[in-house]
């Protein structure tokens, strides 16, 4: 042993370097190959079709290259629909935050057991179809619906309130569908906030409300941002609920896509709409991420 170790040729600094390097890169290749099935799947069912749609969006009905599918979007109906889609998504997200944050906070402060039980009520909406829920809201909110009937019987109002077939009804229905998507990630992130931080804030002299605003709220922002992004993006694709509860007046981009698919003979027409939505959504999420520095302190316990 000693002899081998002392051998001048072998003690050379580069000894085995190539073989070790090869071993290392082989290990990395093996690891990469483990993610391969997932990567292939994502490529096949996500990247490839989106790329294909993107490609198609530059062709007209008879296969000629054209920008017509995009220039058409300058028509007032598309502009209006585009704006109203983001308005609805923004409004629904805002209401979800206002309603969902306190619920998530309450759940996060309860014992795991109680929170688990109450969580059933949060996810309950998942168990019925969106269509059924939407019709249920119609029954509740329409002119002759339960809410208006009660209010009239109670003498609060004399003529029915316009609760549905408008923006209000759309927002109510969509919030009902989207609330769990906000609460679940928010709750998870709030659970992860150790109660010691609130104690530390109190010890520093913060009143409970100061501790909440200055410590808990900022620490829950990553979870809130995740929920907000999820709700906002899902809202952009809404179709059934706004169609029914909006009384036809609330135009959503997804409806326009569906219309274009059936009305235009070329896939490119609808593809272009999809591409624009995708790009704008991407930009908004990026800005959102930069604005709220979503990942600035994630993983900190």
């Amino acid at each position: 042993m000693t002899m081998v170790l002392n051998h001048p040729g072998i003690a050379d600094a580069d000894h085995n370097a190539d073989a070790l390097k090869r071993q290392g890169s082989r290990e990395r290749r093996v690891l990469a190959s483990l993610t391969l099935p997932g990567a292939i799947l994502i490529f096949l069912v996500l990247i490839l079709p989106i790329g294909w749609l993107f490609w198609l969006s530059f062709f007209g009905p008879s296969g000629e290259p054209t920008l017509e599918n995009y220039t058409r979007m300058l028509k007032p109906i598309y502009v209006r629909t585009f704006i109203s889609t983001f308005e609805v998504a923004g409004l629904v997200t805002l209401v979800c935050v206002l309603l969902g944050y306190p619920v998530a906070y309450l759940l996060s402060q309860l014992s795991e057991r109680t929170a688990g039980l109450l969580m059933i009520f949060v996810v309950l909406p998942f168990w019925t179809s969106v269509l059924v829920r939407t019709y249920a809201w119609l029954v509740l909110l329409q002119r002759t619906g339960l809410v208006n009937t009660w209010l009239i019987d109670a003498g609060v109002i004399s003529t029915p309130l316009p609760l549905v077939h408008n923006m209000l009804g759309t927002v109510i229905g969509m919030v009902h569908v989207m609330l769990p998507f906000l609460i679940l990630p928010l709750y998870a992130s709030m659970r992860a906030i150790d109660s010691v931080y609130m104690r530390a804030a109190a010890n520093c002299g913060a009143t409970p409300s100061q501790a909440f605003r200055q410590v808990f709220l900022p620490m829950s922002l990553p979870g809130l941002a995740a929920g907000v992004a999820l709700v906002f993006v899902l809202c952009l694709g809404f179709f059934v609920t706004p169609a029914l509860l909006g009384g036809g007046r609330v135009a959503m981009w997804a409806m326009q896509i569906a219309n274009n698919i059936s009305v235009y003979g070329n896939w490119g027409a609808a593809s272009a709409l999809g591409v624009v939505l995708l790009v704008v959504t991407g930009i908004i999420l990026y800005v959102f991420k930069r604005l709220f520095r979503v990942d600035s302190f994630e993983g900190v316990r």
Partner: peptide
């Protein structure tokens, strides 16, 4: 014990 420094 674990310092409880505010991460933000």
């Amino acid at each position: 014990q674990n310092y409880a420094l505010f991460p933000h």
